[in-house]
Write a protein that binds this DNA or RNA. Sequence first.
DNA 1: AGATATATAGACCAAACGGTCTTAAAATGG
DNA 2: CCATTTTAAGACCGTTTGGTCTATATATCT
Lengths: 178, 178
Amino acid sequence: MNVFWTRGYHATALPDLLRATKLSRGSLYAAFGDKHSLFLRALDRYIADALARMDVEFAPDREPIDGLRAYFAGYVERNSGANGRRGCLLVATAMELAGRDADVDRRIGSFFKAMEGRVTGALSRAKAAGKLADGVEPSSAARIIICFVEGMRVVGKTAPTRIISQATVDALLDRFIR
Amino acid sequence: MNVFWTRGYHATALPDLLRATKLSRGSLYAAFGDKHSLFLRALDRYIADALARMDVEFAPDREPIDGLRAYFAGYVERNSGANGRRGCLLVATAMELAGRDADVDRRIGSFFKAMEGRVTGALSRAKAAGKLADGVEPSSAARIIICFVEGMRVVGKTAPTRIISQATVDALLDRFIR
DNA sequence: AGATATATAGACCAAACGGTCTTAAAATGG
DNA sequence: CCATTTTAAGACCGTTTGGTCTATATATCT
């Protein structure tokens, strides 16, 4: 996963994977099939990690606004310095492979859907608690937020400063909460 | 440019470029040097086109809010249907090559800076004209908007419907204008 | 028309690609 | 301690990669 993450799918060669897994060529093929299958498994793990993180952040017994803040804080962290420069496997994969690889399409599409559902849920609970600014509609606000955080991952590839990222997410949240 | 745009840098092979340019191998190398130089020229054109478009949208004699609407409308258009699935050469390049290619780094970085400057300018003029909502600060709002539109290009790779994109940009703009 | 410059097609190159297979070494089980 | 299975190392395969070079054809110019 780490190799695909830092290099991208096409730029990752078999020797890179052998070095990272400390496996021989034969063992790697016996264990994972081909490069494409291995990549899919790496992507699945990346997605599972991300969803698990969000399930903690947006846990139903938590204040939804706090959850949103934690969610944003995670993106600030992942977007700063070396983390930022490394980028996001999911975004990189979407740009590199989506539309040309049906297996990837399904995964990317369902991930964004899952994320949208979770953010919408948190915003709905916040709205029910009267914490949202006037006129904010949970589902469209969720779509805004998702585009925003994924865009951070793009911009963060070249301009990763924590202070600015933090200020930017704060300014966005300010537009949505009361 | 079109070939790199639809396939990405690594996935583009010499024969693809020969077919697209209708040049022979020798002629292509005589004209452009190597693959990397040709890619840089393609990227430069893509960036120049984008900046030229923004110079029209954010022309100083135009209502800044109208400019912003036109700017968003362009992203909705580029993000819908086949255009959306095709994606954005700049975003794809940022994810694929930034951090590993100094020539690319410079171009991506300066593009985002240029875009941020233009959006900030439009927002400042809007603020001066009293058209911005209370508490909206042009420079941080510009950073939000840039992350948002670049994120659209990512999400749009798999979920490109015009109606939703339009509704989402409208909802975002609503948070910023009076 | 004839000399010169330019562009073409494509043979050719070494290196690297993803993937398979054989052989030897290391664990493992009774 | 021997027989069996599992693992490792790496030779090997055909294909494709980015890049060069030569021979031929096509313009161009006086």
